[in-house]
Design a protein around this nucleic acid. Structure first.
Lengths: 231, 231
DNA sequence: AGCCTTGTATGATATATATCACATATACGA
DNA sequence: TCGTATATGTGATATATATCATACAAGGCT
């Protein structure tokens, strides 16, 4: 791949990702020089919980899930990230390790930028540092809400939450091809895959939401939001 | 209160709080000038979720809980903080609002430092900024573990977790006067106060942990840790 | 085309935990 | 000292959700 092409793919990320927008032309040059692309198939681990953060991951295309792993226990799916996102992590300025795994959930291109460069940019570019920390804060606040949802809501409410999250934050349409299977929906909603099936059936029977194989359709957004608030 | 006395109370905080240690003498002077103390009785709100972060709170004496509030739902007790801690918050560089409430759980002296000063220190003192962000990251990682504990463990495991947290992080002794009532233990462990009573009775019957009124005694640390890992 | 694996659905049952009702203790003010 | 409020304990029952067993469907491979 020549420089021009690289410039092209990166320019997309720069446009969509507020973190990159804080960088000067020279700084971006430097990032170009210390980055590399890799393409992952669905289900492949992009970064493993516990491993050192040698490079920071930026999603170029595809989708990835952030999961909390615990030996002998089911995974906890924290969130789904879409392009173009620089995946910040709270361990970056502590133990320099990943505290969750990043796993692709469809064909995904990830860009790896050397952490050394990121640290240098941190020292030099105050605005970049600020946005970086803001991003970590955002994920923290997101987590507070995940906590609330999982603790306070019943199964239907939690599934409604998942669907609304995917609709609003990821796919943006009432109709979408879902990239999470039933088990992953379960891991996001803190329930079993069997219960996911049952709740999905209820939602379909009531004409609120239809998930047939991987084709999702929100039939009644108002009721879905009501169920998410619920009861 | 004269300058000498103020200097004395503050010097304690400076010794115990890594955040303050990053400041120069001049910077500390400036903090002194833009701070004020208030004493809170047990149960009083030190900072309210949703309100603007005009001042950053540093606990001087006493204990406080950080709680997630949700209208019409029970509170979620995120953690307990002890002196001397500068209570950082993920909203500080986002919407500048508290995303949890800070509530005293015993007679507590809190020191309020103007956020304007904190922001200035941020620009000038890189090390201070670094430690600040580290602290936010630490709370984030703590939250991941809270997530795991609440999702993966049964009631006994969750109560054992609470006790071990209080023992290791807060009181440091096998014997301690607990400042959380049964409801607060329930809010920390995601269960009802009735269930807390029942589990505490079991732990007492098995000679593992005794909580009589507010006097807590860990009788068998090994078994308690085993229950926390559990099963 | 048939076979095997993997994902999904669904019913019967088990189980953890909440809820409700009440009892007891402890603190607190008149 | 009493009476009232508040925190805690305990039992009986209800309920949400998991588990287990099995069936069905859809792809991929030979």
């Amino acid at each position: 791949m020549n420089d021009l092409q690289e410039g092209f793919t990166c320019s997309e990320c720069i446009e969509k990702c507020s973190l990159f927008k804080a960088l000067t032309k020279d700084e971006l040059e430097e990032v170009y020089e210390h980055r590399y692309d890799t393409t992952f198939r669905s289900g492949e681990v992009i970064a493993k919980q516990g491993s050192p953060i040698s490079h920071i991951v930026s999603l170029s295309t595809g989708l990835a899930k952030l999961v909390l792993e615990t030996p002998g226990k089911p995974d906890i799916l924290l969130t789904v990230v879409k392009p173009t996102t620089l995946i910040t992590s709270p361990g970056m300025f502590l133990d320099n390790r990943y505290h969750f795994s990043i796993v692709s959930i469809k064909e995904t291109k990830a860009c790896f930028i050397s952490m050394t460069i990121i640290r240098q940019l941190f020292e030099r570019n105050h605005e970049f540092a600020k946005r970086f920390h803001r991003s970590i804060g955002e994920r923290s606040i997101m987590l507070y809400n995940r906590f609330r949802n999982i603790i306070h809501k019943n199964m239907a409410g939690r599934i409604a939450d998942s669907i609304l999250f995917l609709h609003k934050e990821i796919y943006g349409e009432l109709n979408f091809k879902i990239d999470l299977n039933r088990s992953e929906l379960a891991e996001y909603s803190n329930m079993t895959k069997e219960s996911v099936s049952r709740i999905l059936k209820e939602l379909k029977d009531e004409g609120i939401f239809d998930l047939t194989s991987d084709h999702a359709t929100i039939l009644n957004l108002d009721r879905l939001e009501q169920i998410a608030k619920n009861g």
